[in-house]
């Protein structure tokens, strides 16, 4: 399997404040994320709101440049190169957004929306572009007579199909999906997820799948990365992470997943408290303030990811938990 995207210790820090009276600060939105993504594979990034998932998505689509670290697409670096080289690589990563109501231009018809990527990049002539767009519509399950309709005439699920079709128009090799189904009804979620999986099988796409829904992740992912406060706390193959979660945060997330099967309902581990402010993170483990296993070691020294039971865990007490 060819590795399409490789992130090495990617960090994205924002400088904030520094006004007349405000104190200067640094928000560590993404703080040391490494992963590799191969063709035909799905890496799911999970975590609660504000943990840096969406920022990671923006970094992966090259909309934001990391402050440090390196992100390679197809083996070519993207951080240390000039704008022209970045632009060329950017086209091989496209994005599907969370909100299908905001991600489609309300003033354009479906046909125009699908042809736009080709027009921008001057690919083919008008007839070829139209043929490609119509073929893509059929591919994602839209009818040909919906060509001239505007986004407001479609349901959420259909809009997300249009968004997926648009993302695929440039034949990207990597698709970054930022919570693509969380705004949809459960029944529609399954349809869109199945469409994504079919497309992946057909084109060998690599997915960076951002989600907070572990049920969805269980369905679609190959690898799982759990993020907390901008840092990965647990990262590895889905089976291993779900079967033997070692980080207390992952365990709590899994315990919080709703299930209809009473035998699957696990012990009630609840997460207390709020995320620490990313503006002023504690020196040790970011999760220490909410962790039942926290010791003085946790508040003093930041745990680095280490290999345990086939996946990476960033916790001092990972062996003792479980």
């Amino acid at each position: 399997m060819t590795v399409l995207m490789q992130a090495h210790d990617v960090r994205l820090h924002y400088n904030v404040g520094g006004g007349l009276f405000a104190q200067k600060g640094v928000v560590k939105a993404v703080d040391g994320v490494s992963f590799s993504l191969s063709a035909g594979q799905t890496l799911a990034v999970v975590g609660e709101s504000g943990c840096g998932k969406s920022t990671l998505a923006r970094v992966a689509t090259l909309l934001e440049t990391p402050t440090s670290g390196e992100l390679a697409i197809d083996g070519k670096p993207t951080v240390s190169v000039d704008a022209a080289a970045r632009k060329a690589l950017r086209l091989s990563v496209q994005m599907v957004f969370q909100n299908p109501y905001g991600s489609l231009n309300p003033r354009k018809t479906v046909g125009d929306i699908l042809q736009e990527p080709l027009v921008i990049n001057a690919q083919g002539n008008a007839a070829a572009r139209q043929a490609a767009a119509r073929a893509m519509m059929a591919q994602v399950g839209l009818r040909d007579d919906q060509w001239a309709r505007y986004p407001h005439m479609f349901s959420g699920g259909q809009r997300q199909r249009i968004a997926i079709a648009r993302a695929l128009m440039l034949n990207p090799r990597i698709l970054v999906a930022d919570e693509p189904v969380s705004a949809l009804d459960i029944s529609i979620q399954a349809q869109v997820l199945n469409l994504l999986m079919d497309l992946q099988a057909q084109y060998g796409l690599a997915y960076l799948f951002i989600s907070h829904d572990l049920g969805v992740v269980r369905h679609i992912a190959d690898d799982v990365m759990v993020m907390y406060c901008g840092r990965p706390v647990e990262h590895g193959p889905k089976a291993s992470v779900f079967a033997t979660p070692r980080h207390p945060y992952t365990r709590m997330l899994l315990a919080a997943t709703p299930s209809v099967d009473p035998t699957h309902r696990k012990t009630h581990l609840t997460i207390k408290g709020e995320l620490p402010s990313p503006l002023n993170p504690p020196p040790g483990c970011a999760f220490a303030s909410r962790c039942p296993h926290a010791t003085s070691l946790c508040t003093e020294q930041r745990p680095e990811p280490r290999e345990l039971e086939g996946h990476l865990v960033a916790c001092h007490h990972a062996e003792a938990i479980g």
């Binding site: 632009k87 086209l91 957004f97 909100n99 905001g102 991600s103 736009e116 921008i120 990049n121 440039l170």
Partner: peptide, 17 residues
């Protein structure tokens, strides 16, 4: 700030476009 602008930008659209 809308996603469709981000999407168009990810396609490599120029500032004028």
């Amino acid at each position: 700030n809308r996603d469709y602008v981000t999407a168009t930008r990810a396609m490599g659209a120029s500032m004028r476009r």
